[in-house]
Simulated assay, not measured.
Amino acid sequence: MRLPAWLSQHIAALRALLVLTVLLGLAYPLAFVAVGHLPGLSGKANGSLTSAGSTLIGQSFTDADGNPVPKYFQSRPSAAGADGYDPTATAASNLGPESVVDTADAKSLLTQVCARSLAIGKLENVDGSRPYCTADGVGAVLAVFYRDGLTGPVTRAVSVNQTGTPFVATYHGVTVEPAEDGQDYVAEGGVVTPIRGDAPAHPVVPADAVTASGSGLDPDISVAYANLQAPRIARERNLSPVRVHKLIEEHTEGRALGFLGEPAVNVLELNLALDGK
């Protein structure tokens, strides 16, 4: 007996639904669960949990006031959540290279980098200066006004990220003014002009120490940043520098597949090793 066309279509659709449910709803997930339990992958598949957290998700090593705990290696900055490293709010700051002028609502990426570098310089007792940063840790940026708009002699210059004494006294023979709260000098016609300054071309404080990762959850730091912190760790824990550098080497992971990315140090694993856990 020939079934009606509408019934045949519904039966075919039901068969397809059942087959796809079995393949994609059962077989496919189970296959990936099995792969995740292969040797070498099972730890990451289960979250790589330790008594102090997950080695796959970064965390802060700070006190109740947000200050770095001196006896621990510090992670890189995080923009995930209000206090950083919030797995439920993984995100970047969405600020790019052109974010150099502070606003009433937020600091520019440049000022954030400058402030972090200055703070790390003080913590590690090294030179925290960077190009395009002022000595007090804000972006060294002027709003420059020209007689003919974008050309001609300079008629005015404002240090847009400073309300106090400007980081430079004059620019092209014009006295530099401090910024006033609430003023948008770019909208008034000022040309944004970062000033490089005399900081070294290759700062002592590495880039990953002052910039957040795209996820905000990066558990690793560069070998350079770990080595920068080693003297402080040795001093705070009364360890020899050789011992601290040995621990860094033991917890350094090579490039992915041997050629992707750069060697990195897992901060949680390194700090657990320092605590003997």
Rank of each mutant, 00 (worst) to 15 (best):
S99H: 08
D105S: 14
S99K: 05
P219S: 11
L217F: 04
V113T: 13
Y132M: 07
H37G: 00
H37T: 10
V100A: 05
R243C: 00
G53E: 01
D65L: 13
Q112E: 15
G66S: 12
Y185R: 06
T151G: 10
I11R: 12
D181S: 13
Q74T: 12
V19R: 07
L38K: 05
T103K: 10
F259P: 01
L7M: 12
Y185S: 11
R2K: 12
A199F: 00
S99D: 15
D220Y: 15
T21W: 02
F167C: 05
A169E: 14
V19F: 07
S93T: 14
D198G: 04
G128K: 02
N271P: 05
D148V: 08
F73W: 03
V204E: 11
F32N: 08
P68N: 09
G182A: 06
D105R: 12
A31L: 06
P166D: 05
T134F: 00
P231N: 09
G190H: 04
A140D: 07
V19P: 00
A45R: 05
P231M: 13
G139W: 03
E177L: 13
V204G: 01
L142Y: 01
Q112R: 15
P194R: 02
D218Q: 11
I195N: 00
P77N: 06
D275Q: 15
R15G: 10
V242W: 02
L23D: 06
A16E: 11
A80L: 08
R2S: 12
V158K: 01
G190T: 12
G96K: 09
S129W: 01
L110G: 09
P203V: 09
A91R: 14
G189R: 02
A230W: 00
V113E: 10
L110Q: 14
E98A: 13
N266C: 14
S222L: 01
A179S: 14
A199N: 04
T155C: 08
G25L: 06
Q162G: 00
G276R: 11
N67P: 02
T175C: 01
H37V: 07
Q183N: 11
E188A: 15
V223I: 11
A135Q: 13
R2G: 10
T165A: 12
Y146N: 14
A212N: 06
S213R: 04
P263S: 06
H245V: 10
L17S: 10
V204M: 10
A264N: 12
A212W: 03
R196V: 08
A207C: 00
K277A: 15
R255A: 11
G254T: 14
R116E: 00
A264C: 03
Q74M: 12
F145V: 12
D102G: 10
R243D: 15
T50G: 11
E236A: 15
L274D: 09
P241K: 05
P241Q: 06
A106W: 01
